[in-house]
Design a binder for these strands. Structure first.
Lengths: 211, 211, 211, 211
DNA sequence: GATGAATGAGCTTTCATTCAT
DNA sequence: GATGAATGAAAGCTCATTCAT
């Protein structure tokens, strides 16, 4: 004879876990994992220190949960589907803009992931294998199809896709988080345009435009 | 009246500091700064905990020393000078290869820098302003001159350079550290070649080659 | 939903703080502030080292609390009020006896205060300014009124009062703490009587008694 | 075949010990015994840390030496001899002035002695028995003789003498060290005059002067 | 004699985790 | 379920003392 239906209880439990994960992500992004005590997380979530352990076995378990719940990698397959009917040019521009927005919305996760990656290399590798590599491969296949076998033979599309992501991530990091945007200001639209353009045609002078 | 000549003592002192910095860099890359105690560092270096403090005032001072001694950013001005007489094509290929090798030699530093960056955002920003932004600007100027004003008007060379660095760093990270190299194997020479090619001409089909 | 009523918890908390303050005062009197570790204090109070920090933020905070809770200076204004209707003779005898008893009850505090005074000169000066000097001035005013302007012009009552307190404190210290009482035994009543008599009439032969 | 004659070596040794004792007294008065490291003392004395241990077995041994070498108690027997031919009045005034000057010259020792007394109660008691009690007794005998048996029967001269010393010490302490001199300023000559006068005749109105 | 590098015990303080209520 | 008092391991750092040179 539980007062609360099992499903309600489960829902409550899940909500609490979610709340704790949200709070932890925010705090860890600010002060780091080691720099944020369980008491602080619990307090910020409005529960007592001891109550925390009803929802997570250890502090480390919460970290894993946070990393599992959120993802730096957007739903790439849906994205590919979305952009299927667009030209390569449009698709790349759309991808860059979307990725930039995704990063902006996951700023905290990016910081936490960077910080904890070296310490949890094994888990990071597992996540890469599970999420990043398939996404990378799917995008590479799509790109292969778009640029044709001749060009695909000249460069590794797997690497090209990863290069594109790298451009976006590092530029976002330096621009938005590390303050380079204040020292070398470039409007956001020009950034995403430049990155897409770079991916599409590179920096080299466009000889054909001279003809 | 010391038995050891001052120069010998200084040399010994410098050697010890170097040894401690090396050990610390290695351990921090594995377990993080907070996760590695002074006792562990000292022990790994073969000295007692207290002895550590004869060489560094605090644990934090050792971190600063490690960061000062090593740099993720190679001497960019020298690099520009070096590549001055080369064509853009050669210069970019050389730059990518050089950067990749530099990262490989600073693997541990890269991990430490990533890990500690979010926690020491203020210092990271200062370092970016002092080192990264000037290097970025210098490379952008060089690139401006090479690609001519017409093309430079079409994209931000500041962002383009940062994009290039981003490609290299992230690709290195996923390939060499996060294990993507084992799942989607691509030879190193093809990686650097692809990244340079991407930066120079992009992925888009080379229309002029059709002519 | 705590099981213990808030008032009970507060009472327990206050009791613990008091117990820690008592234990600390005793230990500090024996071994000094620096010579007594938090672990020792906690252990003597029957709690673990870490538990100490639930009751006091730092070791220094406990010192302040101990000094705040106890005072070497009795409530001088109340004392003056009390003795208002008595003759000078009775008032002085009463003051000396009261001060002696107060010192006996604050033996440990006296030792701690003496021990820490040189190290915390600034705080000691502040305490002197806040507590001792006003008490000194109030007693001097009372004495001024009692002995009349003629005699008050011949000696500084501020100094006289301080001299009286000095007699009492130093005699108590040598007699009760430094063991002089065993080597030159004098009954306590004779001590207080002598000190009061000394303050009132000095040692010089009482010429008027000859008449 | 020593290069240095034994006596020279001994003299050098004694000089070093003296220098260390002087330096230690000064530093301890400022920062306390625990607050002053052996390295600081040695450094201030111009020798290396290790060299210190050629002159004193431990830090504690230096403390004992400092306390043994200096004395808060002036040569009382000589003083009595000096003042033998003076009247009681003159003798007391001279004693107070002399004691005040002695304290002023031993300011550092006073602070160190106060600070360490509670921690070294056993030694302090021994010193009291060896130095203070005999001086106290000698002064009491002298006073007995001066005031005559009638008055001596009415008060304990042992306590009276101790009271006199207490007045002087505590007044000196509050006035010169604890800053009361700035808040309730009284010229030094008036202080010593008041204390002597207090000891001689007390504060009570001089009835006989009215006659 | 003189040195100062080396040591490790010991300090204050923090915090993940447990558990009686 | 919820609480927060209690714990003790572990951290960074200091310093009296030793000892090879």
């Amino acid at each position: 004879m539980p007062r609360i239906a099992a499903s309600d209880r489960d829902a409550f439990y899940a909500t609490r876990r979610q709340a704790l994960a949200d709070v932890a992500l925010k705090l860890w992004a600010e002060r780091g994992y080691d720099g944020t005590s369980v008491a602080t997380i619990a307090g910020e979530a409005g529960i007592a220190k001891g109550t925390f352990y009803l929802y997570f076995e250890t502090k480390g378990a919460l970290l894993l949960e946070v990393l599992r719940r959120n993802s730096l990698v957007p739903n790439v397959l849906a994205l590919i589907e979305d952009l299927k009917t667009r030209s390569l040019e449009e698709a790349v521009h759309g991808f860059v803009r979307g990725a930039w927005r995704h990063l902006a919305s996951q700023r905290d996760l990016l910081l936490v992931a960077l910080r904890e990656m070296p310490t949890h290399l094994a888990e990071a590798r597992e996540a890469v294998a599970r999420v990043l590599v398939p996404a990378n491969a799917a995008l590479a296949r799509d790109l292969d199809a778009r640029i044709g076998p001749a060009r695909a033979a000249e460069l590794s599309t797997v690497i090209a896709v990863r290069g594109l992501v790298g451009m976006i991530v590092v530029t976002f990091l330096t621009q938005e988080i590390l303050g380079a945007g204040q020292l070398l200001p470039v409007p956001e639209t020009e950034i995403t345009k430049t990155l897409a353009e770079l991916f599409l045609r590179g920096v080299a002078p466009q000889k054909e435009s001279a003809s």
